[in-house]
């Protein structure tokens, strides 16, 4: 599992797409202080809690509204590419299918945690403060997206289709999730409980539920993968 996790983590850094995504995060972090100062100078009536986290608003916005697009864009084919090219046979004959899924998931999640951590470290250099809660909230989102990406990569055998889906879901997911949080329609509002934004709205430890949802997705992915012919 560790070997698969390590490889997935390192592979996530390779390639043009990864460099672009990392650059977006680091640049956003670099200009966060300037952006926060600009917002504060606009005479907007921020609450004291909002003022506390305003430095991280750029990164939070990025991960909330583009997180799905970025995570799926980079890792949509983490399992189905290996199945398609039959390299997965080297793995399933050596280790358990659970180890493969968990290893892949941890590798992707660690990559995003590293990106977020680097961004928050850059922000902290400028604002002399480190917001652990927002870091963990952002990480919970990244972990949720990573788990969903792994699940889709197990369920959908064609890498071409998951690539298409990464664009569609990347755009539709935050819009739909945002609407779910705000809607009063009882027929669909219950869905907000299986989407992450609802839990991030709370300032307490509710974001931990997002990690739980991610664990459920990974468990489903493992069950599906165990039945899958490689």
């Amino acid at each position: 599992m560790l070997a698969i996790c390590k490889r997935e983590f390192i592979q996530s850094f390779k390639g043009f797409k990864s460099i672009i995504v990392i650059a977006i995060f680091l640049l956003t972090a670099y200009y966060s202080k300037s952006f926060a100062d600009l917002l504060l100078s606009l005479n907007i009536d921020f609450t004291s809690e909002e003022k506390q986290i305003i430095q991280t608003i750029g990164i939070s916005f990025l991960i909330m509204f583009f997180g799905m697009l970025f995570v799926m864009g980079l890792s949509h084919d983490t399992i189905n590419r290996e199945t398609h090219e039959r390299t997965i046979r080297f793995l399933v004959t050596r280790t358990s299918r659970t180890s493969i899924i968990v290893g892949k998931f941890l590798g992707i999640s660690l990559f995003w945690f590293a990106c977020l951590l680097a961004s928050f470290v850059i922000i902290s250099i400028f604002v002399h403060d480190f917001d652990f809660i927002v870091l963990f909230q952002s990480t919970s989102l990244a972990v949720y997206y990573s788990a969903l990406t792994v699940l889709l990569s197990v369920l959908i055998p064609k890498p071409g289709f998951t690539m298409f889906l990464s664009v569609v879901l990347g755009i539709a997911f935050p819009i739909f999730n945002g609407w779910l949080v705000l809607t009063t329609n009882n027929w669909v509002s219950w869905l907000k409980y299986i989407f992450p934004f609802y839990y991030l709205d709370e300032v307490n430890g509710m974001f931990l539920v997002v990690f739980l949802l991610a664990a459920v997705f990974v468990a489903i992915a493992i069950l599906a993968f165990r039945r899958r012919e490689c």
Partner: peptide, 18 residues
């Protein structure tokens, strides 16, 4: 049994490599 996989070597058919 996953424990026994350590003692098994497999060259599958039609394998492509990384």
């Amino acid at each position: 049994n996953n424990a026994v996989k350590k003692e098994i070597g497999v060259m599958p058919d039609y394998s492509s490599l990384y």
